[in-house]
Each structure stands twice: as structure tokens, then as C-alpha cells.
Nucleic acid binder design. Sequence first.
DNA 1: GTACGGGTTGACGCTGCGTCAACGTCAAGA
DNA 2: TCTTGACGTTGACGCAGCGTCAACCCGTAC
Lengths: 268, 268
Amino acid sequence: MEALRRDWPIQDIAKLAGTTSRTLRHYDDVGLLKPSRVGSNGYRYYDGDALLALQRILLLRELGLGLPAIAEVFRNQTDTVTALGRHLEWLGQEQERLARQMASVSKTIRTVSTGGDPVAEEMFDGFDHTQYKDEVEERWGKDTYARSDAWWRGMGPAEQQVWKARVAGLGRDWIAAATGGVDPGSAGAQDLARRHVAWLTSIPGTPASDDGGDTRGYVLGLADMYVADPRFAANYGGTAGAAFVRDALRIYAGAHLPGAGSGQGKAE
Amino acid sequence: MEALRRDWPIQDIAKLAGTTSRTLRHYDDVGLLKPSRVGSNGYRYYDGDALLALQRILLLRELGLGLPAIAEVFRNQTDTVTALGRHLEWLGQEQERLARQMASVSKTIRTVSTGGDPVAEEMFDGFDHTQYKDEVEERWGKDTYARSDAWWRGMGPAEQQVWKARVAGLGRDWIAAATGGVDPGSAGAQDLARRHVAWLTSIPGTPASDDGGDTRGYVLGLADMYVADPRFAANYGGTAGAAFVRDALRIYAGAHLPGAGSGQGKAE
DNA sequence: GTACGGGTTGACGCTGCGTCAACGTCAAGA
DNA sequence: TCTTGACGTTGACGCAGCGTCAACCCGTAC
């Protein structure tokens, strides 16, 4: 009987396997599954073996594997079980990610529906002076706090936002540097210190902004506070990050900030 | 002071918000966030309000919302809480999907590592005659079973695969028709019935394949069996689906299959 | 003058096909 | 034989959200 080694046109195979001819042509294009025969007119024909291969491909696809991973399995470069195992791990991570995202979304919904501002919640609000009123008054006097606070309240929300963002950006860069394994004395960290001091200097009412203020003492005092107070340390990724900031600031102060009484060093 | 209504170049804003200038230009392109000002040289500048908007956008993005959804929120066409609520539902569905997929992957890993064939597992194996040996012998005689079985074993695995796939494809189409809410007497269902009979007819050794066999009785008997036996019904999506198949076959037989003794009706 | 750090506008790349578009083939009916 | 219609072919765009060149202009500093 001539029924041996029969093959069928693309549409038939697609229907048999429950997919589309477009998919088959795609698999041909990417080299995943070639037709068992191609007619002189360019028509693709597939035999039983090709169908079997196609079904394996479709099965793996349904399980979520990507075409490159499937191709690896087919070229015997990877064991099916290994590939599936890796994929399973992948799926687990995705689930975790989704779970975290769902938690964040839920939290944001609660925040928003109780009238809160999600942006402020999310951002390191280290710039909100009222949060540290007592500390500021105790260390640098009531006048410092009052002037700084007045300046802050004198701005509109949008302008305040810029300042907050600036702190946030600085914080991000500090964390990146601290976790990046570089040295507090490195050029990158020292540039961060420069930005940090420039930021402090630009806030009216603080000792650093006064031309005759003790910038050095102010900076070093703050640096210690970052490490000592977990509320500050949180802005730099925890105590370890805060320690990195403190060390960088100390080095910077030693090189660029003279002792009390002679204004600031080189700050942008 | 002229510090009011300040704005900043694209790079600065990108850093403040912790993103890239490319992203800002993309948001401009898609109309999600326009610069507050554009210089005569084409440079983009953003003010504090724009920064605030950007931060809200980035926050929503981090939560997984798509840019179109975010744009809706910003055009006040959708409440933030509503959008987030919808998104939360979405995330839940994704998690379920992942969970199902993980279960499938795990099962497949077990199947493969114990030497099983995942493709065969997945496919409706309704064509494996040996599975129903007793029923076949009891209803249509030992000879019918033996001839059919010999024919089946005479094929190679690839050819068998084609037959299995054909049954699977037929099953898929039956299920689609049954759940699609169409009538068993409709043209679509009747065409399925025609295919079904053609399939039965093409299996050597059965009453339907004999020129003088009782095709009508064979088909109607099978139709009843599909409904009565849950192992058969499973091939058609359960008893409800099997009932649909039975009804369609009855109608088809009434119109196209003459009584015992006069061969088959019109079958391809 | 020139070098350098940014700005601009395209346009491709990635994933896996769905979906036209424009055009050959083939079997069947008038 | 011509027509029709179903099916085949090869491009090529589209989608999500930017990353990543590429080619070219701007502004400031040395």
C-alpha cells in the first residue's frame, strides 16, 4: 500500500494539531520545525513525524516555554526535564513578583481611598523638616528650625516636590554607591558628597547656608545622625548605607570643608 | 526672587525621578506627559508640576499598570482607585494562571522523568482500541476487534500519531460546537457528524468499513455508548458534550444512513 | 577652533504570532 | 476554457515599553 510515508498540506496539519498555518510558517521561519517536504511550488508538506514534533512543541509552549528554549530541547542541547525545571523556577519567581505587586497595589488603594498621597508615601520624605523638629531645635537652635521651616512653607507644592525629588535622587544614588561596593573615598562617592553638601548649603536658615556658619560641623553632625537615627538611616538604605554616607562625608569634609568660621569650600 | 516657576532640562528631571530621558521622550511621544516648555531649539523643559505628574506615572507603572490605563487616569476618565482595583483583579487572574501552569509543568516533569510520553498523556486517547477491548468484543464480536487491532498495530508510530491527532481534532471541534450553543441539526454540527462517520468508516474491520456492514446501527450504537460511558464521554468534554454528539449523529444517520444492509450513505 | 557633554529626531530590537496585502496554484463547475 | 473560490506563498506592519545606536545640532569651556 502506498499509504506509507504520507504527508499533508499545511492547513491539514494545523487543524490536526489544533493550531494555525501561520504558526507553522513561523516555526519554519525561525527554524524550529521544517516541513518534511516542500513542493516545487513552494508548498509545505508535513508527515507523521513532523506532526509528532509539532505536538511536542505545542505542549511545551502551553507550559509557557519560549521558542528558543524549545529549540534547545529539540536540538538535544538541553534535557526536557532540565528545561522544565528551569521554567518551573521561573514561574515561581513570577508568582512571587506578582504577589509583591498585588500587595503594593492593595496598599496604594488603601492609601488613596483614605485621602493619602501615594507619591509622598513612596518617596523618602527625609526632607520634611517638621518630622524632625525636636532634633533640629535641640541641635541647632529654634531659629534654625523656624527659618528653614518658613522657607519650606513659602514654596508651592510643585516646588516642594522638586526638592523632595532631589533628596530622593540623592538617596537613590547613595544607595547605589553603597551597595555597588565602591570606596567612600572614590571619585563617585566624593561627588555624591559634594552634591550632598551643596544640597545642605542651599537650604536657607541652616548653619551651612550662612556665610559665616559652621558648615563643617553641621555636615559632620548630620553625618553621625544619619547613622545613629534609624529614621534618617532609612533614607540611605539602612544603617550600613548611612555609614557609607557618613564616611564619604567625613572624607569630603576633611578635604574640602575648613574648620568653623571660614565659609564653605567648593560647592556647586 | 525669580526662583518661581523654574524648570529643568530633561536629563535633570529624569535623574530626579529616577528614570531616563528616553522614557520622558517616549511619554511625550505617546502624549502621556508633555514638557511644560519647549525651547526654540527643541529642547524639552519640565517644571515642578510636570515632575509631580511624572512621579505619579512612574508609581502606577511600578504597580504594573499599562501606559494607556495610566493615561485614562490622568485624563480623569477613570478613578485611580477604580483603575487599581481592575488591575488588582488582573493580577489575581495572572497568579491563578501561573499556578495552573506550574501544576501542569510539575505533572509533565513527573510524567517525563518516569519514562512517560507527555504528548500521548495530553491527547485524548480515545483511539486506543485496546483500551476498550472488552466492550468492542462484546458488542461487535471478536473478529471486529482483531481486525481493527491488527490494522492499528500494522502502522508505525508516526502514522498512528496522525490518526490520534485526527480524533483529537474531531474531539476539539465537537467540544467547540457543543459549547458554542449551536443546534445539533445545524450545518456545522452535521458536517462534524459527516466527518465522524467518515472517520469510523475508514477504520478497517468495523461494521462501518464493510461494504455490507450495518453502518447505521454501528454509528447509533456508538453514539449511545459515548453518552453512557464516561470514558468515552470524556473525549467530548463530558456527558453534555457527548449528548450533543449523539444527537447530531442521530440526525445525520436519519438523513444520510440507510438501514442495515445497504452500505453507507454519502461519506467522503 | 575645537572638544565635550547634552539635546534632537528617527529607527531597529525584543516575543510570538494575528492580520492584511498582493499574488500564484489547483480542483471543480459553467 | 474561463471563472470562481479555497488555499498556498512571501513580505511587512502591529503590539508594550522603552534600550540602544546613529546622525546631527547646541552651548559652553579651553
